[in-house]
């Protein structure tokens, strides 16, 4: 086994916490009209004004109401983060912008599909780790697995990191979906 001890300590989890001084990470939930080009508008705003996107997910959440929900994880100084929210809020097809990080507790989840190709001891170890992370096997051959894993981004980072020496082939991640805790809606 060529597994580094405590490998998750040098994983992306560590990198994620390591923001430049004065910068913060925020998860924003954005309710938009589900119309052509709306995602391009949002992405164009971020790239045009030099804002960061760490994660972005979007899909229709209300078919009859023609509404989509965008979850974007971004970083910046408090002043820039306020700008991002104000710039999003004034776009015509955007209904609401919520800062899930600063407006109370929220739940964040990401789904990942992780493919490993291995045999022998590596195969056994990857299955043990799968159980430890409560991942599922969604595809198997004699020399590969596809694991499905749900969790906070750092949990997925840690799992992917552990799979790397065990024959990691591919990772597909959905990006973060997030929602506020408690009875209130957006």
């Amino acid at each position: 086994m060529d597994l580094k001890r405590g490998s998750s300590s040098h994983s992306a989890y560590h990198l994620r916490s390591n923001l430049p001084e004065g910068e913060e990470r925020r998860t924003l939930s954005v309710l938009v009209d589900n119309e052509a080009g709306v995602l391009a508008r949002v992405i164009g705003l971020f790239s045009g004004r030099g804002y960061n996107i760490e994660s972005l997910t979007v899909t229709e959440t209300d078919h009859t109401g023609h509404l989509s929900r965008i979850t974007v994880v971004t970083t910046g100084t408090p002043m820039v983060l306020e700008q991002i929210k104000a710039q999003l809020d004034r776009m015509i097809p955007i209904h609401r912008v919520r800062d899930l990080t600063s407006e109370g507790p929220s739940v964040q989840r990401e789904l990942a599909l992780v493919k490993v190709a291995n045999t022998g001891e590596h195969r056994v170890e990857s299955l043990r780790l799968k159980d430890a992370f409560r991942a599922q096997v969604v595809d198997a051959t004699l020399e590969s697995f596809v694991f499905e894993l749900t969790g906070a981004p750092d949990k997925i980072d840690a799992f992917v990191d552990l799979m790397r020496p065990l024959g990691l082939v591919d990772v597909s991640r959905t990006g973060v979906a997030a929602i506020s805790r408690g009875p209130e809606g957006m």
């Binding site: 002043m79 306020e82 700008q83 104000a86 710039q87 809020d89 004034r90």
Partner: peptide, 11 residues
């Protein structure tokens, strides 16, 4: 009238 103009350059 535009909230994004406020606190953009100067607090």
């Amino acid at each position: 009238i535009d909230p994004s103009s406020i606190n953009k350059n100067v607090r």
